[in-house]
Design a protein around this nucleic acid. Structure first.
Length: 659
RNA sequence: GCCGCCUUAGCUCAGUUGGCAGAGCGAUUCACUCGUAAUGAAUAGGUCGAGGGUUCGAUUCCCUCAGGCGGCUCCA
């Protein structure tokens, strides 16, 4: 926060009197955000809100949204206003219009907005009664609906009608004093549109359901971004360009890792040889770590009779996410009458019921617990076509899944072990900067099953475990799965984007449904608790995250091609070929570039493929039994003796180094 | 699933107000034998996403479908 405390000044004043700094665009009066035009009482605590502070940016963006709405209505007076709040990095405004906006409309609207900004219209707050608001906004059906909602039940406060009173903001032409536009809004706003400057841009158009419900009409939403200066806008646009450069869908094509053939179907990926190597490395490393941590690997089928998902209740709670059944074994006579009842089979959307059946296959002793079953389990989910997105949202994917069966008293210790394990493994892949979210039940929703005592003790256990990790923990009441609390782990990638990865969920429900038991030390039958652990979420998605994190330039051990040999001329093919062969014999993924390209072209190709080591050899190297290194960043080390070079490469693989 | 936009060579993209389809990269071949991000030349490569309609004629206009992109919704 850049807000500064301000001492109280004697007589009655407004924010304009108090703050001369033009960067101050609003103020907090006794903790409440207000326009600078608001008057201040002598007992008030006042803080300045500068345009670059989080509050200031939100106000800037909200005011920019108003300017957008004014621009839209200046061009199309029939456009009905929805809502227009600030969001991360920008704002949007929803409109009900006859025909959707086009990219050309956006350019035209930006121009209109610039004119409004230059005009320096004042945002003037005015308190109105509900009746006044209704008559002034008679032509705005959505605003009228918002007015109707105000004072209703626990509805979230919105930027339109939150707060104690209804207010309308008039946009006033500073020269004529005429109100040129107005909008129902709680504020606060910038003192003048001029402060918006040239740090804004309209970014895209999209449809959005009115008030976020599929049942409502879709409005046309215009998204924009807004910043205090043109330079900051450019920085933001550069960040977007960097994110686009790292897009895993683009890198997947460029590095020949995977594709989504339309013949196979939406959201169903095939892995090419290079992507296959990457995936194998990740899986093998994970397998080894899982084994070391006491997990036992299992295999289960991709398809099962309906019975299993009836017993697990997935066919009730998760039916929408499942592919329709495959009807098998039905027989009919010549008249078409069913002579043998068929069976429905389903593609599995989750692995847990299968693992549970392995547990239940025989009697279990407390001595076997915790029993940790893990699997790279491939699941299929019938995601809505519009929700699919590269490898991060697909219809078939592989979870590095595990289900741990523990005695209730083991829950806390095991959860701590799981979290520790998850963090260690993710660090192996080069991820850092983790945050935890503890999702709990709340008193408002009714979906929760299981006893309050169970919830309380499990939540307390997870809370302790999360706290002990030393990571930042956010508690989220109401966000738990219906069957138990969970810890989700988020990580930030190299350019600061947050990704949800692992989840550790406590489940009382499935052990109950499947009647799981173990024999305790005293001979009594007890019910185990289950922990669901998806470490990388989905391997497919995890690879997408790593791809974007590393921008395709993986650490040596994960690189599909680790070493490429580039002879200076054909003459040196044989010499360098021997070096490459030695590396291959030691398990290094090394290739020799025998193409007819010239050397600089080969270097360019290898660099674009983001291969960590380019080994170059010409006369200087051959006569000294040496090779020359060229690295991704272009720096070189010439004349390295072959044995030393090999050693160095092997070490970097062993230590999972980035080079 | 809903709304909007898009789909032209392996890739990135021009183009046609309805009249024989274009470039760069990539591929192949030939020449060059080369020291740190593109040597030169030639050749091949297309039912203009699929199907239907309008038209003398459709890659171009209209309809349906598929796939992609951006959102919304969804993500137990």
């Amino acid at each position: 926060m850049t807000a500064t405390k301000v001492d109280w000044v004697s007589s009655k004043k407004t924010g304009f009197d108090l703050f001369e700094d033009r960067n101050v665009v609003a103020m907090r009066v006794n903790g409440e955000l207000k326009d600078l035009a608001a008057t201040i009482e002598s007992s008030d605590q006042v803080e300045a809100v500068t345009i670059s502070s989080p509050d200031g940016l939100a106000i800037l963006r909200h005011s920019t949204a108003h300017v957008l709405a004014q621009a839209v209505q200046s061009i199309n007076p029939d456009a009905k206003l929805g809502i227009g709040p600030p969001i991360t990095d920008g704002f949007y405004y929803d409109f009900d219009v006859e025909s959707p906006f086009t990219p050309e409309d956006l350019k035209q609207l930006e121009k209109a907005m610039e004119r409004i900004v230059k005009q320096g219209q004042r945002f003037q707050r005015r308190v109105v009664s509900e009746a006044e608001a209704r008559s002034e906004l008679a032509k705005e059906p959505y605003k009228l609906e918002l007015i109707g909602l105000k004072g209703g039940t626990a509805e979230d406060e919105s930027v339109e009608v939150g707060g104690a009173e209804l207010t309308i903001y008039d946009n006033v032409d500073p020269k004529t004093g005429e109100t040129v536009w107005k909008d129902l809004c709680r504020g606060p706003h910038l003192p003048s549109t001029r402060l918006i400057g040239n740090g804004f841009a309209l970014t895209r158009v999209a449809a959005a359901y009115w008030r976020g419900s599929e049942k409502n009409k879709q409005l046309q939403r215009i998204y924009g971004t807004g910043w205090p200066s043109k330079d900051e806008l450019r920085d933001y646009q550069a960040r977007l360009a960097e994110a686009a450069r790292r897009d895993h869908r683009k890198l997947g094509v460029e590095l020949d890792l995977f594709s989504f053939p339309t013949e196979i179907g939406s959201g169903l990926a095939v892995w090419h040889p290079k992507g296959g190597i990457l995936r194998q490395e990740i899986e093998q490393h994970s397998l080894k770590r899982n084994r070391e941590a006491g997990y036992q690997y299992v295999y289960t089928p991709h398809i099962t009779k309906a019975d299993l998902f009836v017993e697990s209740n997935h066919l009730v709670t998760y039916a929408d996410g499942m592919f329709p059944p495959i009807h098998l074994d039905e027989e009919r006579d010549a008249q078409g009458n069913v002579t043998k009842q068929g069976q429905d089979y389903y593609l599995k959307p989750m692995n847990c019921p299968m693992h549970i059946l392995i547990y239940r296959e025989r009697g279990r002793s407390y001595r076997e617990l915790p029993l940790r079953l893990s699997e790279f389990g491939t699941v299929y989910r019938n995601e809505l076509s519009g929700a699919l997105h590269g490898l991060t949202r697909v219809r078939g994917f592989t979870q590095d899944d595990a289900h741990i069966f523990v005695a209730p008293e083991q829950l806390e210790e095991e959860a701590a072990r799981v979290l520790e394990f998850v963090l260690a493994l993710l660090r192996d892949y080069g991820l850092e900067n983790f945050e935890l979210e503890l999702s709990m039940k709340d008193d408002e929703k009714t979906k929760w099953i299981g006893s309050d005592e169970n919830w309380e003790s499990a939540t307390n256990s997870l809370r302790k475990v999360a706290a002990a990790s030393g990571l930042k923990v956010t508690e989220q009441p109401g966000e738990a799965a219906f069957y138990g609390p969970k810890i989700d782990l988020k990580t930030k990638d190299a350019i600061g984007r947050s990704w949800q990865l692992s989840t550790v969920q406590v489940d009382f429900n499935l052990p109950e449904r499947f009647g799981l038991e173990y024999t305790a030390a005293d001979g009594s039958r007890q019910r185990p608790v289950m922990i669901h652990r998806a470490l990388m979420g989905s391997i497919d998605r995890f690879i997408a995250i790593l791809l974007e994190h590393y921008a395709g330039a993986f650490p040596v051990w994960l690189s599909p091609v680790q070493v490429i040999g580039i002879p200076v001329a054909e003459e040196y093919n044989e010499y360098l070929g021997e070096v490459i062969a030695k590396l291959r014999s030691k398990g290094v993924r090394a290739e020799l570039d025998l193409s007819t390209d010239r050397m600089p072209k080969k270097i360019r190709n290898a660099t674009l493929q983001k291969i960590p080591y380019q080994l170059i050899a010409g006369e200087d190297d051959r006569s000294n039994s040496a090779v020359s290194f060229r690295f991704r960043d272009g720096h070189q080390e010439n004349g390295v003796p072959v044995e030393k070079a090999i050693e160095r490469i092997l070490e970097s693989i062993e230590n999972r180094e980035q080079v």
